[in-house]
Amino acid sequence: MYAAILGHLGADVVAANALASVVFDLAVVVSLGLASGGAILIGKEIGENRLEQARRDASRLCKLALFCGATGGILILLTRPLLLHIVPLTETASGYLAIMLMINSYYIIGKSINATVIVGVFCAGGDSRFGLITDALVMWGVSIPLGLLCAFVFRIPAMVVFFVLCLDEFVKMPFIYRHYQQFTWLKNITRDFSAEEGTAQGT
Rank of each mutant, 00 (worst) to 15 (best):
H179Q: 00
D127V: 04
L186F: 07
T116R: 06
G147M: 01
D57K: 15
P174T: 05
A70G: 10
K63F: 13
I108G: 05
Q53I: 14
R56H: 14
G141M: 14
V121L: 10
K63H: 11
R56D: 04
I144M: 03
G141F: 09
C150V: 14
L165S: 04
R60A: 12
N188I: 06
E91M: 12
A158Q: 09
G69C: 06
L51R: 12
F170W: 14
T134R: 04
G69L: 04
R129M: 08
H85Y: 13
S143C: 11
H85F: 14
S143F: 09
V138P: 01
T79K: 07
T92K: 15
G126A: 01
I133W: 07
A151F: 14
A151G: 05
K187V: 05
G72F: 04
C123E: 07
R178A: 11
A151Q: 09
L84Q: 03
L82P: 10
D57E: 13
T90N: 14
K172A: 03
Y96L: 06
D168H: 06
M102L: 12
R129P: 03
N114P: 04
M100A: 06
K111W: 14
L132Q: 11
R55I: 08
A124R: 08
L165P: 03
V153K: 11
L148D: 02
L64M: 13
V87K: 04
T90R: 15
A70E: 00
D57G: 14
C166V: 09
T184L: 11
M159W: 13
G72Y: 01
W140S: 05
